[in-house]
Design a protein around this nucleic acid. Structure first.
Lengths: 237, 237
DNA sequence: CACTGTTTATTTGTTGGACAAATGAATACC
DNA sequence: GGTATTCATTTGTCCAACAAATAAACAGTG
């Protein structure tokens, strides 16, 4: 087959206007669902995929790289591409990609989101919270105070807030919150370099816990909102 | 340089034991941070990267595919690789689960999440909403009424709710909402098979719009909450 | 038979080179 | 001055070859 023929064929056959690689990704995905492949099963070899979908090996490989980056397959020499489900880990990795700085607008969006999740959810929160939850919040706060580094303190800080979200008993919300972890952590660390976590942040958390214990909705909302807004000055630009 | 030399050199020079592609991803990452490249800036061309890092073009391309999949660069012919920041969107994309069957608990979680986003955000919503927004909501509602099928009606229904979320002006929240689209759509279609979208759903939306126009917070919250809970009976199990 | 080291075959990993396609920039034209 | 055309650059895809890893088959040894 000559170059022109190959080009013409590809253009005639290819259904969508997307690139060959993107098409292939879609095809492999539907192949997975059509064949009902489960975690642990293997995909056909690269060369089989070339034949089946009439694509070159480089195209197949680029498609494979995407699936790998998405945490859908694990590729090993000789054994081939095995279906996995590392999407959660991948999602976390994405934000751990530290090359990019948290911009002011990202900070605004994330903190706005958190305000919605942690402040506006007050009714549901107060309806569900137990003494055990409060005890755990206390523990997380103590761990933060005794942390040795800003990073360690931020981890405990995040644990405090995650524990609060957990009270809502909504898996979808909890998952989204966990995905945002790396960004939230970055925001927290930034704050920790200027304010000391063992004093300011600690007492803010303590005040929030106190409002929860006293079942004081208004105090809780006010204190949590202030707490989330405390980082603002560090991101002015 | 012969093949063996190339291989030997690569093995000698390559610092980590990872693959050439993974190495390259790391190198490009540090190149971004070292040069202080920001969103909007361009990476060197593929061939320049080949020379600089002594790798073949296919290797460079596979590395680029990973960065693209991570939402860090956008690649266009002639222009090259531009740095972007779609990491949030990408990370959430990974959760675009191949929605199997929407269980009762999934329904509860998703609708609970939506209640938080659409009901609890009332303050921010009323602060920002304009006449133009309301007009667009009206249009989406009309389109739903005139839809030919349950699927079409659900698309318009989703457009209505997305438009509302958009008013909040928070990209993170909007991204999350868009990602949940497949699940939300399934929930909507299910409802549409029993209630008729041209009557019940339409008038519920109309009532919500009315409350928005009248700037009536309490009415809005009550009506939206009821609207979101209307699907409950279809998911008892 | 059980175990261990070796060979073999298969599959992914990497390279180099060629051409197609897209497109921004320069140029010619009216 | 504005518009169509050509040109140059860059990514997109394909092909063919060889390197490297490794699971599986095999042979040797106690």
């Amino acid at each position: 087959m000559t170059r022109e023929e190959a080009g013409a064929t590809a253009e005639t056959i290819r259904p969508s206007s997307a690139s060959a690689v993107d098409d292939l990704v879609a095809k492999i995905r539907s192949l997975i669902s059509d064949e009902g492949l489960k975690v642990g099963d293997n995909l056909p070899t690269e060369r089989e995929l070339c034949e089946r979908f009439q694509a070159s090996r480089n195209t197949v490989r680029e498609a494979m790289r995407i699936l790998k980056a998405y945490g859908i397959v694990s590729v090993r020499p000789k054994v081939g591409a095995t279906i996995i489900d590392d999407r959660m880990e991948r999602a976390l990795d994405l934000f751990a990609f530290n090359t990019l700085e948290v911009s002011r607008s990202t900070f605004n969006d994330i903190q706005g989101f958190r305000t919605l999740l942690e402040v506006a959810s007050v009714e549901e929160l107060f309806e569900r919270i137990t003494q055990e939850d409060i005890t755990e919040l206390q523990r997380a706060n103590d761990e933060m105070m005794n942390a040795g580094s800003a990073m360690e303190a931020s981890e405990a800080d995040f644990r405090f807030h995650t524990r609060l979200i957990q009270v809502l008993g909504n898996k979808a919300i909890l998952d989204v919150y966990k995905i945002m972890k790396p960004v939230i952590l970055k925001i927290m660390v930034r704050g920790k370099t200027r304010r000391t976590f063992s004093t300011t942040t600690f007492s803010e958390h303590a005040a929030i816990i106190e409002a929860l214990s006293a079942r004081d909705r208004i105090a809780y909302q006010y204190r949590m909102k202030s707490h989330l807004e405390a980082g603002f000055p560090h991101f002015d630009e």
